[in-house]
C-alpha cells in the first residue's frame, strides 16, 4: 500500500500518545515551527557564517582588499591567495570578505530603512485614513509604477554614483512595497473589536497604532524585510556589475563581479568572478530560506 509510511507514522504517534509521552507544546508556536523548518535553519546557518566572516574579515585574512600588488597579478588560487588575485594583484578572497561588508550593509540597511519609513507611514495613515492616507497612497503608486531597476538607474543618473546615494535610492524605491503591506494590514486590523475598545478608553492614536496594532502585523512585515534584503543585494550586485552602482574603488560583491564583463577574464580567470558569484547566490538563498521559514511559521493557516 502506498500509504504504509504514513500509516506507520500514525501508529507511532498513537502509541506515544497512549503512553502519555506527548506533552502539550509550550513556548512560541512560531519559533517552534521555525526551528523545525530544516531549510530555514540551513538558511540561518549560512547567513550567520557569511555575515560573521564579513564582519570579522581582518581575522580571517591578512591581505588588504584594496592593496595593489603588481608582482602577483592574475594568480590562480593558492595557499597564499585562496581565491587567487585579480588584474592588479589584489587578493580576491579579502575583497570578497570586505566587499560583503558593504554589500550586506547596503542590502540589509536599505531594507531596514525602507521598512522603517514604509511601516511608519503605512501604519499611521492606514489607521487614520483621510487626506494624508490618500496622498501617501498616490505617492507610493507613482514610485511603484516604475520598474524598480529603471527607477534606480534613473535616480543614479540624476544623483550620481556614491554609496550613500545608492542607499537613499534603494530606500526611495523600496519603501512603497512596505508601505502598502503595512497599510493593508492596518485597514483590516483597525476594525477589530479590541481597537474599538482601546479607542473608547481614550488611548492616543500613535499609541494604538504603533504599540497595539503594529505587533499584530509584524509577521508579514518581517517576511517582507527579508525578501527586500534579498532584492537589494541582487540589485546592488547588478548595478555594480554594470558599473553604475557603488563606485568601483570600494570593493563590493557587484564590483568584484564587474571584471567578468571581459570575455577573456570570463574564460581564463574563473577565480576572479565565480567564487564571488556563488557567495552572492548563497547569501541571497539563505535570506530567502529564512524569509520562507518566517512566512510559514507566522502563517496561522498552515499546520503540519
Amino acid at each position: 500500500m502506498a500509504n504504509s509510511a504514513l500509516n506507520r507514522k500514525f501508529d507511532r504517534i498513537r502509541a506515544l500518545e497512549e503512553a502519555g509521552e506527548l506533552k502539550p507544546l509550550t513556548g512560541s508556536r512560531a519559533l517552534r515551527k521555525m526551528m523545525n523548518n530544516r531549510l530555514a535553519m540551513v538558511g540561518v546557518v549560512i547567513f550567520l557564517i557569511i555575515l560573521l566572516s564579513a564582519i570579522f574579515a581582518p581575522l580571517l585574512t591578512a591581505h588588504s582588499p584594496t592593496k595593489i600588488d603588481l608582482r602577483s597579478m592574475l594568480q590562480s588560487p593558492s595557499g597564499e591567495h585562496w581565491f587567487g588575485t585579480d588584474k592588479t594583484g589584489r587578493d580576491v578572497f579579502a575583497r570578497v570578505l570586505y566587499g560583503g561588508r558593504v554589500s550586506i550593509l547596503v542590502g540589509l540597511g536599505s531594507a531596514l530603512l525602507a521598512a522603517l519609513i514604509g511601516v511608519g507611514v503605512g501604519c499611521y495613515t492606514g489607521y487614520k485614513g483621510g487626506i494624508l492616507d490618500v496622498i501617501a497612497l498616490r505617492v507610493s503608486e507613482i514610485f511603484m509604477s516604475f520598474p524598480q531597476i529603471i527607477l534606480v538607474l534613473l535616480l543614479v543618473s540624476i544623483a550620481g554614483q556614491s554609496l550613500a546615494n545608492l542607499i537613499v535610492i534603494f530606500v526611495l524605491t523600496g519603501w512603497g512595497g512596505m508601505y502598502r503591506l503595512a497599510r493593508a494590514r492596518m485597514l483590516s486590523l483597525r476594525e477589530e473589536e479590541y481597537v474599538q475598545a482601546l479607542r473608547s478608553f481614550g488611548i492616543s492614536t500613535p499609541m494604538i497604532c504603533y504599540k497595539h496594532i503594529l505587533p499584530n502585523a509584524l509577521g508579514p512585515i518581517m517576511v517582507n524585510i527579508t525578501l527586500t534584503t534579498a532584492m537589494f543585494i541582487l540589485a546592488e550586485a547588478g548595478l555594480s556589475f554594470l558599473g553604475l552602482g557603488v563606485p568601483l574603488n570600494i570593493p563590493t560583491w557587484g564590483n568584484i563581479l564587474n571584471v567578468a564583463k571581459d570575455l577573456r577574464v570570463l574564460q581564463n580567470n574563473w577565480w576572479m568572478w565565480l567564487p564571488v558569484g556563488m557567495v552572492i547566490s548563497l547569501f541571497v538563498l539563505s535570506v530567502n530560506f529564512i524569509g520562507d521559514g518566517l512566512r510559514d511559521s507566522t502563517d496561522p493557516s498552515q499546520q503540519g
Partner: peptide, 13 residues
Amino acid sequence: MLGVSIPEFFFGL
C-alpha cells in the same frame, strides 16, 4: 529558491 536567489547576470555569465 535557487532561481530567485542567483543574480541573473551571474547565471547569464
